[in-house]
Design a protein around this nucleic acid. Sequence first.
DNA 1: ACTGAAACAAGGTTAAC
DNA 2: GTTAACCTTGTTTCAGT
Lengths: 152, 152
Amino acid sequence: MNDIDEIDRRLVVALQRDAGQSLEVLGETVGLSRNACWRRIRALEQANIITGRIVTVDAARLGFGLQVFMQVRTNAHAPDWLEKFSNATRAMPEIQGVYRMSGDLDYLIRARVADMAGYDALYQRLIRKVPLSDVSASFVMEEIKETAQLPL
Amino acid sequence: MNDIDEIDRRLVVALQRDAGQSLEVLGETVGLSRNACWRRIRALEQANIITGRIVTVDAARLGFGLQVFMQVRTNAHAPDWLEKFSNATRAMPEIQGVYRMSGDLDYLIRARVADMAGYDALYQRLIRKVPLSDVSASFVMEEIKETAQLPL
DNA sequence: ACTGAAACAAGGTTAAC
DNA sequence: GTTAACCTTGTTTCAGT
């Protein structure tokens, strides 16, 4: 498949740290001219290896001080349950991650809310949309580490 | 504290979706001139509300096809255990998230590895660094949703 | 096929209002 | 907050390896 060489790897590392730096300084760090960098980055984007460019924000200072993980179980084995669950969670903006886990019919949800009242509202909305046999919530007391960087 | 008005809010929303767009089009979407946008964005950065600018990547295509959540328990109540645990996990680049959870002495780790062998290596390295009484791993079979956007 | 150098266009930054 | 000048930086062109 689309394999990546050492220079591309270093570019991705640099851009995962800071996507705001100029092609000039990127070129210096990877040892290439500025438009060689530019073409490689464009190629990485077109190959969907680089998928986007976003800002990171301080969630707490924007009113989302509480992070919660919800472990979800269902007893509904209907074939369309997963689709309904997927659509429902995708449509709920507080939910940042939804994962189908190993261990049959076990789902994990990661969400950000303002506070406990916000969590309860989220919970109520979710169970009204999808039948869930069991939901248990664990709240994040302290974020010890949080990064999107991959160890390339 | 540093409160944010409607326009700042819309700017953050737009930049969380795509930080690559020009000040011109940002200005059109929020209804402001291009350097009014520029000054607001700079203010948001200096206030550490916008904390950075990064690229998103396809983890699987970069060789990190397996995402794992590790639930960690310890019986070591020594006062410096948490510090040792924090330092160890922060220094391990496969680990993307470490959270102290509600329910005493319960930690959650989110990590990305290539495969099961990669997970085992991570696990071995972790328990060699920090005494852990119990570690249970759950593997992500399917990523149903994954975003960093906040519902502003 | 991929590079670097220079010309060019676009967008970020500053100054003035 | 705006508009307009400025100048860094992204983008295209082109020729060399």
